[in-house]
Design a binder for these strands. Structure first.
Lengths: 190, 190, 190, 190
DNA sequence: GATGAATGAGGTTTCATTCAT
DNA sequence: GATGAATGAAACCTCATTCAT
């Protein structure tokens, strides 16, 4: 009889916010329940465990990025510079909207050595991000060099987001994007 | 039952390893006790809470870096390049010795929004690191530019360490150091 | 595992018995759990801490007295002597039913200097008791004298209950009630 | 080699203050150590357990009362009124010097049902007190009546001390002594 | 589907006590 | 005698999970 109070989508996005802020182990099912307006027990109608919920959160975020962000990297109607800018705009939207950094990085650094199932999902996400960046650099650079530039770029962005959070100083991200843009416009090494 | 089984120093360094690998919230006092060969309760002889222990760990690591690493950045007998290399050598020793990344970054991303006392200590550490890097760049660049290069560099290193851990791929760090070296040798912007 | 095994009312009254016998600090949540047929952790479903439980116990007892005992002191259909007797009958029922004295007094003497939240609740209880007694004496005595007689009476009863417990000698209470009766029938001081 | 830092006497009197204020179970050996300027472990050179210490405290207090207070009740050079006044003076000194009530009563109400060894010692104390009072009343009243008046009086004093502590209102004790004085001067029932 | 009571394992912490120095 | 490190039991409390209603 009881009507559904919240959609699975919403449940996942609400949980995401909490996990991003408080981390995996410090987030309790009660915390999740609270932001969803449910009782602890009710969450188990949707996810069979906290671990499954976290995996759903990671996966959902990954799919979202694939569709809404990384897709631009492959959009043949755009120049490489335009593509890069699209990714940047989205990055900014996410990373500047809260002071809590990047869900994927936060969870990765917290659980990389103890929750292999999360690690697999998270590295898949970063792989897709790197591939997207590489495909942009590919227009001007050779495969291997493009890949390296992509790896550098993703690493730099995550480094910048980390510092941004630690120092509460937004400039890090803008300067980082600036440098990536310069990479794209630099001369191929040979 | 009596007489010291472990020095406070050792206790801290053993704890550090566990905290780095498992994070703050997922490390139990029982875990700490185990790596120290003590009973749970005995740790409270040395630190009045898990939180105080974590703070001692952060502080000890910070002091260690100040003395053993950052000090090279101010060593007038060395050229800037030599100084940078000293820092790099040390970075490698730490970050390549395990697959668990950087204690400071791991704890920062896990607890930045919930444990302000840790955040303060951690940002002080990164500030000292940035200052050390800036003092190296200062030999060739103007203050502001040197500072920005220092910030970039620290962010890049942390980004590289993160990726290195996620992908278990050590190349990230070497290439990152390479790029920092190039920054040092590039022409000042004007 | 699910569905209520014990009502909150019962939980409180069962706890009360243990607290009265063993005191606050010497009563463990395990003790409480045992008399309630629950697991330790389950009690936290109903009360968020041992302290809150104790406060609920005190408050419940206070309300119970207000309704079931002190009310007689204000019952206009009864003579002062009848009112006094009603209170006495109830006193006897409580204080003679076990050898554990008076919950309020026991907890007060144990925790008065360390748990101010208990002290406030307990002194409110005694104040209501004194007011009830005063309202009986008021029929024959002036306000101030009635109040003093009430204070004396309550103190005497508590003193008697204490001695009764220490010496396991019930006569104390009966004689004490006798003296209070005589006070009521004595001549007003002027 | 280490010189004695505190005499056993002092240790007992210092402990007494803590036990009176915080009760038996809520006083830790660390608390005791602190007020004695010792380490926890050192207390065990003097008393083999917390329980033994508490018993020494009770016994010491009892002996002190016998010698310094109750003795006046048997002093043939004094009138009954003078004897009573001596006891009163002493009562006031003790009970008005802190807001923590009566050690014997506090410990009795906290532990009567769980620490029979304390109960025995405490009831012996109260018995001596009652006997002392009875010996005063004996000058004017018959044995049985004197005994009852003594019991009443002690109970009343303890009741007054309890109320005094709960309400932080010193008047209780003075009025109580006043009433006891009146008892002594009233006519024997005969 | 939602609820809320219950569970049991495990978390951090406290504490009386022991004992080598 | 005093110390301080260690112990282990037990304290309070949290939490992921289950399940009858």
């Amino acid at each position: 009889m009881p009507k559904q109070k919240i959609s699975e989508e919403e449940l996942i996005w609400n949980s995401l916010k909490v996990f991003k802020r408080k981390g995996y182990h410090n987030t309790s099912m009660a915390d999740i329940a609270e932001v969803c307006g449910l009782q602890k027990g009710s969450i188990y109608h949707h996810f069979k465990s906290k671990e499954e919920l976290m995996k759903a959160v990671i996966t959902t975020m990954h799919e979202h990025y694939n569709k809404e962000v990384f897709a631009y990297a492959y959009d043949e109607r755009l120049t490489p510079e335009e593509r890069l800018q699209k990714l940047e705009v989205y990055s900014n939207k996410i990373f500047l909207s809260s002071n809590s950094g990047c869900l994927m990085a936060n969870i990765a650094l917290e659980t990389n050595d103890t929750m292999p199932e999360f690690s697999k999902l998270i590295s898949a996400f970063f792989q897709d991000w790197i591939n997207a960046m590489a495909s942009i650099f590919n227009k001007k650079f050779k495969t291997e060099q493009a890949l390296n530039l992509a790896k550098e770029s993703v690493a730099e962005i995550e480094g910048a987001v980390m510092m941004m959070r630690i120092f509460d100083e937004q400039a890090y991200l803008a300067r980082c994007h600036q440098r990536i843009f310069e990479k794209l416009q630099s001369d191929p090494i040979n």
